[in-house]
Amino acid sequence: MFNRFILVLTTILLAQIALNAGFWLIGRENLPLMAVGLTQLLPGLIVLLMTGTYRRRLWTLVRRIPPLRPLAGWWLWTALVICACGAAVLFFGVETSPVDAATIAAYPFAWLLPDAASATPVAFLVFLLLCGPLLHLVTAAGEEVLWRGYLLDGLTERYGVRAAVIGSAFAWGAWHIPMVIAIAWVFPQPLLGSVLFTLSLTSWGIVMACLRLRHESLWTPVLMHAVANAFTLGAYDLIADPHSNWLTSPWGVTGMVLTLPVALWLLSRLKPGRRQAPNRHSS
């Protein structure tokens, strides 16, 4: 029912605000990286706890595996976009660290790296591409259950496919605003960061939502999300100056420029669809 749909989304929003208020009180310098993962797990956990009948729909989206060739292609595309943002850091001369062994050692999951993976930057990037997403799979799935699952399906039933894709993507971007304000997440500039995070993730979210609808599977956006997190933490964040993230970040201008054409192309290929009456999947 629609009232349940609104209740679930309101609960998630209030939980996000409360969690980030706690982060603000603790202070980012004292905040373990793992704690930030709670904001990713939170949406999916609330959906699973509050929407009993949607679990059947979710199981369908998880059980269906997309074709491996396009799945691998979008996996690689995501990694290339993040690497291009890293190249932008070097191009604009705003790097804070060279790409070397000492920088690789600062990777939050460096203790999991085999010696061969930390030997050279190229070997490290190969590790991030092949193994890094596994480290972020659970937290990525926690977000995708809501954004490309429950919310996308719920909006589609009421407002049609294209409105649902754009609306769910925009909501995903806006979801990060409390983190920007509370702990300067990604962007030290609260106002500019909030705007850029929202717009850039809207572009990313359109791509991921279109692919979820195309493949009728949650795995494509989950893996893209995991790849993006792996390469951002493992490659981009290690060399970039946070004060320049508005320009070079995957969630800033560079990321938006790289993803928006693809988002618009995928959006143009969607079948418009009609509004549908709410069904049992939204309760």
Rank of each mutant, 00 (worst) to 15 (best):
L9N: 15
T10P: 15
L13H: 05
A15I: 02
A15F: 05
A18L: 13
L19Y: 08
A21P: 04
G22P: 14
F23I: 03
I26P: 08
G27L: 07
E29C: 13
N30H: 14
L33F: 13
L33D: 02
T39K: 08
L42H: 11
L42D: 05
P43M: 06
L49M: 14
L49P: 07
T51M: 13
T53V: 00
T53Y: 01
Y54G: 05
R56V: 13
R57T: 14
T60I: 11
I65G: 03
W77R: 08
T78Q: 07
V81I: 12
V81S: 01
A84C: 12
A84V: 09
C85F: 01
A88Y: 11
V89L: 04
F91K: 05
F92S: 10
E95W: 07
T96A: 06
S97W: 12
A102L: 07
I104Y: 02
A105R: 09
F109H: 09
F109Y: 14
W111P: 03
P114T: 02
A119W: 11
L125S: 13
L128D: 10
L130A: 14
L135K: 08
V138F: 08
A140T: 03
G142R: 10
E143V: 13
L146N: 02
R148F: 09
G149V: 04
Y150K: 04
L155K: 02
L155A: 10
T156R: 15
E157H: 13
R158V: 01
Y159D: 05
G160T: 06
A164N: 10
V165N: 05
I166M: 03
I166C: 08
A169G: 12
A169H: 03
F170Q: 05
W172M: 12
H176E: 08
M179W: 07
V180T: 14
A182Q: 09
L191G: 12
L191S: 08
G193M: 04
S194F: 11
V195R: 04
F197H: 06
T198C: 12
S200Q: 12
S200Y: 02
T202H: 01
T202G: 04
W204N: 06
G205D: 09
I206N: 01
I206A: 01
V207R: 02
V207H: 03
V207Y: 00
R212T: 02
H215A: 07
H215V: 01
E216S: 15
E216T: 15
L218I: 14
W219A: 02
W219Q: 06
W219V: 00
V222A: 06
L223D: 06
H225R: 02
A228C: 13
A230R: 06
T232G: 11
L233T: 10
A235C: 11
Y236W: 05
D237Y: 15
D237C: 00
L238Y: 07
L238S: 07
A240T: 02
D241H: 07
D241C: 01
P242G: 07
S244R: 00
W246H: 11
P250N: 06
G252M: 00
G252D: 04
T254Q: 06
G255E: 00
V257A: 13
V262R: 06
L266Y: 06
R269S: 02
R269Q: 11
P272S: 11
R274Y: 09
R275I: 15
R275N: 10
R275C: 11
Q276H: 14
A277N: 00
N279W: 15
S282V: 15
S283F: 00
